[in-house]
């Protein structure tokens, strides 16, 4: 039962992150997930210090605000400071993360909110933290509800905004020429990424969140040149990653998050070598060694 709950949680995180990741890599913004997953820390700490509790909804809202604020600073430095976008990302998130670390060590040292749990998370504890009602009925792991809700939110967002997201990603100039606000959809997407990142990294840690945001989508990108297929493949790859990652961890008796990250990297490597379109091995076999 615990294995099932952990794989299910891992899959939901992978799907949620992967769907958004498809848009991020096509917008050449893959590292924004990295930035957000770190820079939301001060927002969470401040929310905790002000409210005095680790209420999940409050954390999500605080993180979403900090996440959007982060992307706003990145955009600002990029546009008005004429700094390259990767440099703006690097400057912004390290600085915000550092503030978070200082706040934790200075004010929240005694409580259950430390840097280890933020960075590495621990998916193995998911089944332990159950949601038990007032009358004592066990409704299953709390984490499952949170990430399930966020997944529904992300699917809803992509379904209603599909055209706008697709167009603003492919051709922002044309999008704004026909009256679709590129800025609005950028920030809506960033809000989704922030919420997803925070809901996920409490469960699986920041490193696996970044892996899930980028690797399955990048793998799918190599396997297809249809966008809808790419979204679909990302979901499948996410589930495979979570499943085989769990059993790899059990086999080597190691970290589950770590094993899942390793599997996502392995799957990418397989696609890179053997993808029917882009795989370098397939190209060599088809066209000989002369062409690249």
């Amino acid at each position: 039962m615990n294995a099932f709950l952990i794989i299910l949680t891992g899959s939901l995180v992978a799907i949620t992150c992967g769907l958004l990741g498809c848009f991020l890599i096509l917008r050449k913004m893959a590292m924004i997930g990295d930035a957000i997953s770190h820079s939301v820390l001060p927002g969470i700490v401040i929310a905790y210090l002000v409210a005095g509790s680790r209420d999940s909804t409050l954390m999500l809202i605080a993180a979403a605000i900090t996440g959007v604020f982060t992307t706003f600073i990145i955009e600002f430095l990029n546009k008005h400071g004429r700094l390259q976008s990767d440099a703006s990302i690097g400057v912004t998130f390290t600085w915000l993360f550092a503030i978070g670390v200082i706040l934790i060590s200075a004010y929240a040292g005694q409580v259950d909110l430390d840097q280890d749990c933020v960075l590495y998370g621990e998916i193995a504890y998911v089944p332990l933290d159950s949601w038990i009602t007032g009358s004592g009925i066990n409704l299953g792991p709390r984490a499952l509800y949170i990430i399930g809700f966020v997944l529904l939110l992300v699917i809803f967002f992509i379904v209603i905004g599909y055209k706008e997201l697709f167009l603003t990603t492919f051709d922002p100039a044309f999008a704004s020429a026909i009256g679709i606000s590129v800025t609005l959809w950028h920030y809506l997407l960033m809000t989704m990424v922030s919420i997803t990142t925070v809901a996920s990294f409490e469960l699986v840690g920041a490193i696996l969140v970044i892996a899930f945001l980028i690797a399955p989508a990048a793998t799918a990108y190599l396997l297809t040149d249809k966008f809808k297929t790419m979204l679909f493949l990302t979901v499948i790859i996410g589930v495979i990653t979570s499943f085989s990652g769990y059993y790899l961890a059990e086999w080597i008796n190691g970290s589950i998050s770590g094993a899942m990250s390793v599997i996502s990297g392995l799957l990418f490597a397989l696609a890179f070598l053997f993808s029917p379109k882009e795989g370098i091995v397939v190209k060599r076999v088809k066209y000989g060694f002369k062409t690249n």
Partner: peptide
């Protein structure tokens, strides 16, 4: 635009109808 984008010809032409 990035012509390696995963879209078909008709996908792109259909964008003309989005407005």
């Amino acid at each position: 635009v990035d012509w390696d984008f995963p879209a078909s010809v008709v996908d792109v032409v259909m964008m003309g109808r989005y407005g």
